[in-house]
Simulated scan of single mutants.
Amino acid sequence: MITMTKIDPSLYLPQQPTRGSTSSTLDKDDFLKILMTQLQTQDPMNPMEDKEFISQMASFSSLEQMMNMTQAMEKMADSQTFVPVVQYSSLIGKEVSYPVEGDSETEMGVVAAVSQKDGETWLEMEDGTQVDVQSVLRISQLSTE
Protein backbone atom coordinates (compact mmCIF):
# COMPACT_ATOMS: atom_id res chain seq x y z
CA MET A 1 0.00 0.00 0.00
CA ILE A 2 1.32 3.42 -1.02
CA THR A 3 0.79 6.34 1.30
CA MET A 4 0.71 9.81 -0.20
CA THR A 5 2.04 12.68 1.80
CA LYS A 6 0.36 15.99 1.71
CA ILE A 7 2.27 19.00 0.33
CA ASP A 8 2.40 21.99 2.60
CA PRO A 9 0.54 24.88 0.80
CA SER A 10 3.09 27.41 2.07
CA LEU A 11 5.64 25.82 -0.29
CA TYR A 12 3.72 26.87 -3.40
CA LEU A 13 5.45 29.62 -5.38
CA PRO A 14 2.74 32.29 -5.03
CA GLN A 15 2.93 31.88 -1.24
CA GLN A 16 6.67 32.54 -1.09
CA PRO A 17 7.73 35.95 0.20
CA THR A 18 9.05 38.28 -2.46
CA ARG A 19 12.62 39.43 -2.18
CA GLY A 20 14.06 42.73 -3.23
CA SER A 21 12.13 45.52 -4.81
CA THR A 22 8.43 45.12 -5.45
CA SER A 23 8.53 47.78 -8.16
CA SER A 24 8.37 46.53 -11.72
CA THR A 25 10.29 49.50 -13.12
CA LEU A 26 13.96 50.28 -12.99
CA ASP A 27 15.27 53.76 -12.39
CA LYS A 28 18.71 55.26 -12.92
CA ASP A 29 19.88 54.21 -9.44
CA ASP A 30 19.05 50.57 -10.24
CA PHE A 31 20.91 50.87 -13.54
CA LEU A 32 23.99 52.26 -11.78
CA LYS A 33 23.89 49.47 -9.19
CA ILE A 34 23.77 46.85 -11.93
CA LEU A 35 26.64 48.50 -13.78
CA MET A 36 28.77 48.77 -10.61
CA THR A 37 28.08 45.14 -9.71
CA GLN A 38 29.02 44.11 -13.21
CA LEU A 39 32.31 46.04 -12.99
CA GLN A 40 33.13 44.64 -9.54
CA THR A 41 32.46 41.03 -10.46
CA GLN A 42 34.07 40.96 -13.87
CA ASP A 43 36.79 38.47 -14.64
CA PRO A 44 40.17 40.25 -14.24
CA MET A 45 41.61 38.10 -17.03
CA ASN A 46 38.76 39.02 -19.37
CA PRO A 47 37.62 42.55 -18.43
CA MET A 48 34.68 44.33 -20.01
CA GLU A 49 35.57 45.77 -23.37
CA ASP A 50 35.62 49.53 -23.86
CA LYS A 51 32.91 49.40 -26.50
CA GLU A 52 30.56 47.52 -24.19
CA PHE A 53 31.25 49.91 -21.31
CA ILE A 54 30.70 52.97 -23.54
CA SER A 55 27.48 51.44 -24.82
CA GLN A 56 26.19 50.94 -21.28
CA MET A 57 27.17 54.47 -20.26
CA ALA A 58 25.34 55.82 -23.33
CA SER A 59 22.28 53.82 -22.26
CA PHE A 60 22.56 55.31 -18.78
CA SER A 61 22.84 58.82 -20.21
CA SER A 62 19.80 58.21 -22.42
CA LEU A 63 17.83 56.90 -19.42
CA GLU A 64 18.71 59.98 -17.38
CA GLN A 65 17.67 62.32 -20.22
CA MET A 66 14.34 60.51 -20.58
CA MET A 67 13.71 60.79 -16.85
CA ASN A 68 14.50 64.52 -16.93
CA MET A 69 12.15 64.96 -19.89
CA THR A 70 9.42 63.07 -18.02
CA GLN A 71 9.83 65.34 -15.01
CA ALA A 72 9.68 68.42 -17.27
CA MET A 73 6.50 67.12 -18.92
CA GLU A 74 4.93 66.50 -15.49
CA LYS A 75 5.78 70.06 -14.42
CA MET A 76 4.29 71.41 -17.63
CA ALA A 77 1.11 69.37 -17.10
CA ASP A 78 0.86 70.68 -13.53
CA SER A 79 1.21 74.26 -14.75
CA GLN A 80 -1.74 73.76 -17.11
CA THR A 81 -4.17 73.88 -14.18
CA PHE A 82 -4.44 77.67 -14.45
CA VAL A 83 -5.44 77.62 -18.13
CA PRO A 84 -9.20 78.00 -17.36
CA VAL A 85 -8.53 81.14 -15.31
CA VAL A 86 -6.67 82.70 -18.22
CA GLN A 87 -9.25 81.39 -20.69
CA TYR A 88 -12.18 82.97 -18.84
CA SER A 89 -10.39 86.19 -17.84
CA SER A 90 -11.87 87.83 -20.95
CA LEU A 91 -15.24 87.72 -19.13
CA ILE A 92 -14.08 90.32 -16.59
CA GLY A 93 -16.17 93.44 -17.11
CA LYS A 94 -18.80 91.56 -19.14
CA GLU A 95 -22.40 91.10 -18.11
CA VAL A 96 -23.48 87.48 -17.69
CA SER A 97 -26.80 85.88 -16.91
CA TYR A 98 -27.01 82.77 -14.76
CA PRO A 99 -29.76 80.73 -13.10
CA VAL A 100 -30.69 81.47 -9.50
CA GLU A 101 -30.34 78.36 -7.34
CA GLY A 102 -33.68 76.76 -6.43
CA ASP A 103 -35.53 79.16 -8.72
CA SER A 104 -36.47 79.07 -12.39
CA GLU A 105 -35.45 82.72 -12.89
CA THR A 106 -32.14 84.07 -14.09
CA GLU A 107 -30.07 86.85 -12.68
CA MET A 108 -27.55 89.16 -14.33
CA GLY A 109 -24.31 90.49 -13.01
CA VAL A 110 -20.98 91.98 -14.05
CA VAL A 111 -17.94 89.73 -13.73
CA ALA A 112 -15.32 91.23 -11.41
CA ALA A 113 -12.90 88.29 -11.13
CA VAL A 114 -12.22 84.71 -12.25
CA SER A 115 -10.94 82.08 -9.82
CA GLN A 116 -10.33 78.36 -9.67
CA LYS A 117 -11.05 76.08 -6.74
CA ASP A 118 -10.94 72.26 -6.61
CA GLY A 119 -10.62 72.07 -10.39
CA GLU A 120 -13.70 74.20 -11.06
CA THR A 121 -13.66 77.72 -12.48
CA TRP A 122 -15.78 80.35 -10.75
CA LEU A 123 -16.83 83.85 -11.74
CA GLU A 124 -17.09 86.45 -8.99
CA MET A 125 -19.68 89.10 -9.65
CA GLU A 126 -19.30 92.73 -8.56
CA ASP A 127 -21.85 92.09 -5.78
CA GLY A 128 -19.74 89.19 -4.44
CA THR A 129 -21.90 86.38 -5.84
CA GLN A 130 -19.93 83.29 -6.91
CA VAL A 131 -21.14 81.69 -10.16
CA ASP A 132 -19.87 78.43 -11.65
CA VAL A 133 -18.66 79.25 -15.15
CA GLN A 134 -20.51 76.17 -16.45
CA SER A 135 -23.86 77.66 -15.40
CA VAL A 136 -23.50 80.88 -17.42
CA LEU A 137 -26.41 81.20 -19.84
CA ARG A 138 -25.56 84.44 -21.66
CA ILE A 139 -22.61 86.82 -22.01
CA SER A 140 -22.96 90.38 -23.25
CA GLN A 141 -21.17 93.70 -23.28
CA LEU A 142 -21.90 95.86 -20.27
CA SER A 143 -24.83 98.09 -21.18
CA THR A 144 -24.18 101.78 -20.56
CA GLU A 145 -27.57 103.24 -19.82
Rank of each mutant, 00 (worst) to 15 (best):
residue 25 T to P: 00
residue 25 T to V: 04
residue 25 T to I: 05
residue 25 T to N: 07
residue 26 L to R: 05
residue 27 D to R: 00
residue 27 D to Y: 03
residue 28 K to N: 11
residue 29 D to A: 08
residue 30 D to T: 02
residue 30 D to L: 01
residue 30 D to W: 02
residue 34 I to S: 10
residue 34 I to P: 04
residue 36 M to R: 11
residue 38 Q to I: 00
residue 38 Q to P: 03
residue 38 Q to V: 01
residue 40 Q to S: 10
residue 41 T to S: 07
residue 41 T to K: 06
residue 44 P to C: 03
residue 45 M to N: 11
residue 46 N to Y: 04
residue 48 M to L: 13
residue 51 K to T: 09
residue 51 K to Y: 08
residue 51 K to G: 12
residue 52 E to T: 12
residue 53 F to D: 03
residue 53 F to L: 13
residue 54 I to L: 14
residue 54 I to W: 13
residue 55 S to V: 05
residue 55 S to I: 06
residue 55 S to E: 09
residue 56 Q to L: 10
residue 56 Q to M: 10
residue 57 M to H: 09
residue 57 M to E: 09
residue 57 M to W: 07
residue 58 A to E: 15
residue 59 S to G: 13
residue 59 S to W: 06
residue 59 S to F: 09
residue 60 F to H: 07
residue 60 F to Y: 11
residue 60 F to E: 04
residue 61 S to M: 15
residue 61 S to A: 15
residue 61 S to R: 15
residue 62 S to W: 15
residue 62 S to Y: 15
residue 62 S to V: 14
residue 63 L to C: 06
residue 63 L to E: 01
residue 64 E to K: 08
residue 64 E to R: 10
residue 65 Q to Y: 13
residue 65 Q to T: 14
residue 66 M to Q: 15
residue 67 M to W: 15
residue 67 M to F: 15
residue 67 M to P: 11
residue 69 M to N: 11
residue 70 T to V: 12
residue 70 T to C: 11
residue 70 T to I: 13
residue 70 T to A: 14
residue 70 T to R: 12
residue 72 A to K: 11
residue 73 M to I: 09
residue 74 E to T: 08
residue 75 K to W: 09
residue 75 K to N: 14
residue 75 K to G: 11
residue 76 M to R: 05
residue 78 D to W: 02
residue 79 S to K: 13
residue 79 S to W: 12
residue 80 Q to K: 05
residue 81 T to Q: 07
residue 81 T to V: 08
residue 82 F to Q: 15
residue 82 F to D: 14
residue 83 V to W: 03
residue 83 V to R: 01
residue 86 V to Q: 13
residue 86 V to I: 14
residue 86 V to P: 04
residue 86 V to S: 12
residue 87 Q to Y: 07
residue 87 Q to F: 07
residue 88 Y to P: 00
residue 88 Y to Q: 06
residue 88 Y to S: 07
residue 89 S to G: 02
residue 89 S to D: 04
residue 89 S to I: 01
residue 89 S to T: 02
residue 90 S to M: 13
residue 91 L to A: 03
residue 91 L to M: 05
residue 92 I to C: 06
residue 93 G to T: 04
residue 93 G to M: 02
residue 95 E to Y: 04
residue 95 E to C: 05
residue 95 E to R: 02
residue 96 V to T: 01
residue 98 Y to W: 04
